[in-house]
Design a protein around this nucleic acid. Structure first.
Lengths: 216, 216
DNA sequence: TCGATAATGTACGAACTAGTACGTTTACGC
DNA sequence: GCGTAAACGTACTAGTTCGTACATTATCGA
């Protein structure tokens, strides 16, 4: 009575593809549901493969989350690399970097959400990972270069350092994406709408440049 | 053998106190663990009362979270009320409002965390609640008044509206607190340290004032 | 004072969820 | 070809977690 299907479709082994598949699905799930809200079974279900493989390749839910977080950070930086900041003056270079940060955050809401989630969990996973700190050092170095050049050109004040500046820029770009939902609900302004977005993009540049130039 | 204690301590009914007790504990738990990470049993355990009462008064986990969120927002606003902004010029009034926002966010990390959590959940609870929108309208009105006055005084540009301004101010104040952990881990700067804090507090004021004055 | 209702405590259950035991198939070196 | 290890699938379990059934006590108005 029981029709026992003889293995109808040939299984095909492809460890790399399987790992990538799991990582991608896991990234979406964690970013959407948070760490505790994410379900291992839900991730497995949306994968070409089974839950067994998650544990085979990653070890467990927490390690999978860690891998996702690392992957997210890794695919992020080197943001400044293709900007060709050297070839223009300090104000123009800074403008480009701000706009690149803005566009990056806008295009990577999952990354933004993962960082928010990581902060909810007191950053305990990030703190464990030494490599990620170095990845982020490059933005600071870039900003530092721009600041130095701006001071030499006489267009920037000298009592603001690279980390101050990074805080100012990324807080605005980050918040716009991270707090989109509550901000939109409370103030009836959809920050993802193209016109509003373009307005914000202009304003953050104005703000930073006005600030740095204020002392000169 | 089994010593059956005859009710040793008289039970004392105090519904209001019980409700407040639950709300306070729940606020801490949700803010610390996130919505999915929060445990109803953990909340009950830290309460004077039992889990039964959570369901008796609030109905369930989600409704409890909603009550916490509402309470958090409610205890927040009227921030601008005791600032006496009318009595000074526009720039000074704005400075006071920025500093008040900054201090407020610094002093209420649980509120900040709850807002982050609510955004992780796509703001779906906040969207359900009509009252909360009105509570927040007052900041916008206050900012609008300041902007108008500043334009009359000829010290503020006229192409920035109250919501633009609120976004700029609160993004910085919020991010400092919300992303404290990842920022600290990545850039080795503890944003909660008094000296760093004071520096940021000065800088956000400078930034906003420089920006608004840039066109004049 | 007494009865009705609000307030509370205890113990339990049903469903979910991370993780695993066990068995099978593919791929690849020799 | 063939044997071995890597890659994979299924079915299950142990523990957790939200929620509730049932019983009891306090309170307050009539």
């Amino acid at each position: 009575m029981l029709e026992r299907m003889p293995p109808p479709s040939k299984r095909t082994n492809d460890p790399e593809r399987t790992k990538r598949d799991i990582l991608e699905v896991a990234m979406a799930e964690f970013a959407s549901e948070g760490y505790s809200g994410a379900r291992v079974d839900a991730i497995a279900a949306r994968t070409r493969t089974s839950k067994r493989m998650i544990y085979y390749y990653f070890g467990g839910k927490e390690q999978l989350y860690l891998a996702v977080l690392e992957e997210a950070y890794r695919s992020i930086r080197a943001l400044e690399d293709q900007l060709d900041i050297e070839s223009c003056d300090a104000r123009e270079g800074l403008r480009r970097l701000i706009e690149a940060t803005f566009d990056h955050d806008e295009r990577n809401p999952n990354f933004i959400r993962l960082v928010s989630i990581e902060n909810i969990h007191h950053g305990k996973h990030l703190k464990q990972n030494v490599q990620l700190r170095q990845l982020n050092a490059s933005v600071i170095a870039t900003l530092d270069g721009i600041l130095k050049r701006g001071r030499e050109e006489g267009v920037f004040r000298d009592d603001v350092d690279a980390i101050d500046l990074h805080l100012a820029i990324s807080s605005y770009c980050f918040f716009r994406v991270a707090n989109r939902h509550t901000f939109g609900a409370l103030f009836d302004r959809d920050l993802s709408e193209p016109k509003v977005l373009a307005r914000s993009r202009t304003q953050i540049v104005e703000m930073i440049l006005a600030w740095l130039g204020a002392g000169t």
